[in-house]
């Protein structure tokens, strides 16, 4: 039996695309690209199944392979590191040639076997699929192969359990709770750690307050009130700078200097950010 010309056209197009996609598996540098190629091959296969009078398998192919298996692959790829490009340089001596020769040899053998085999003319599945394809399958599956069916169920459950067991991670320490964190903080007090939340940055009229330290009750700037990132980048402003610009403004406006109003105009210099081990963490 020969196929219809429509099917031949479908096969011609799909087969070409599939081989190209499959070769993508062989040559793609990134694993994600390879995975997408395989997804494509699988979908094409589903179409070919339908063309081969196996609509049920076609659907299952899409659901199981494309929907579940390949998504699992992608999931693991994300887990393992999606951006890690696979080096294509061969490390085992001669392995590349061996692989190519064996792959080609396998192809030659298989195709020669097919070519030399005189297959009977295709019977077609019209009779078998008379009661719709799923019904026909179900009769065989739950008839002749019912034990195999049960065994495969057991296998699936076992595999699921195996997946759980293999990826299970043993907890090595006690779980961190709010109570334990509070205890930690209290324990760290002697090292100079603050019990309370860190102070907010200073607020001044002239500038964005995030980069200016707040002033403590004693009038001293609180270094650690500036966010850590700004301090690391060196973008915080010192209190002296802030006061200096205020003085400049006042002189522009002809107002008397603030310093005169204060008993002690000298503002001590703020240390450059260096020793901040105890204050650098800001929850």
């Amino acid at each position: 039996m020969t196929t219809t010309s429509g099917e031949a056209a479908l096969f011609g197009i799909l087969a070409t695309l599939m081989v190209i996609a499959a070769l993508g598996l062989l040559f793609a540098k990134r694993a994600v690209h390879a995975a997408m190629c395989v997804v494509f091959v699988m979908i094409c296969l589903a179409i070919l199944y339908v063309a081969n009078e196996a609509p049920f398998l076609g659907i299952v192919q899409v659901v199981v392979y494309t929907g579940a298996v390949m998504m699992l692959f992608l999931f693991v790829l994300m887990l393992v590191g999606i951006d890690a490009a696979d080096s294509l340089t061969e490390t085992i001596k001669g392995q590349r040639w061996i692989g190519i020769v064996f792959g080609a040899g396998l192809l030659v053998v298989l195709v020669s076997v097919l070519a030399s085999t005189d297959l009977p003319a295709a019977v077609g599945l019209e009779d078998a699929n008379a009661n719709t394809n799923p019904t026909g399958l179900a009769k065989i599956l739950f008839g002749d192969y019912v034990i195999g069916m049960e065994v495969i169920g057991v296998l699936l459950v076992t595999a699921a359990l195996a997946g759980l067991v293999l990826t299970h991670r043993q907890r090595l320490g006690a779980r961190t709770t709010q109570r334990s964190m509070a205890a930690e903080r209290v324990a760290a007090l002697p090292e100079g750690r603050l019990l309370t939340p860190l102070p907010a940055p200073g607020v001044y009229a002239q500038n964005n307050a995030m980069d200016t330290p707040a002033l403590g009750p004693d009038g001293q700037p609180l270094e650690h009130s500036v966010p850590r990132v700004l301090r690391i980048r060196g973008q915080q402003r010192t209190a002296a700078e802030v006061l200096g610009s205020e003085e400049t403004l006042r002189s522009h406006l002809g107002l008397p200097a603030v310093g005169t109003a204060l008993d002690d105009p000298q503002i001590p210099a703020i240390d450059e950010p260096s020793d901040h081990t105890s204050t650098e963490e800001r929850d």
């Binding site: 085992i92 392995q95 061996i98 064996f102 030399s116």
Partner: peptide, 24 residues
């Protein structure tokens, strides 16, 4: 026995080829 799984795979594929060729 170099411990590389791909070498073992190659060996088994080679064996398969030989067997298939002989049977054929």
């Amino acid at each position: 026995q170099n411990g590389f799984v791909r070498t073992y795979a190659a060996t088994s594929l080679g064996g398969l080829l030989v067997v298939a060729a002989i049977v054929w």
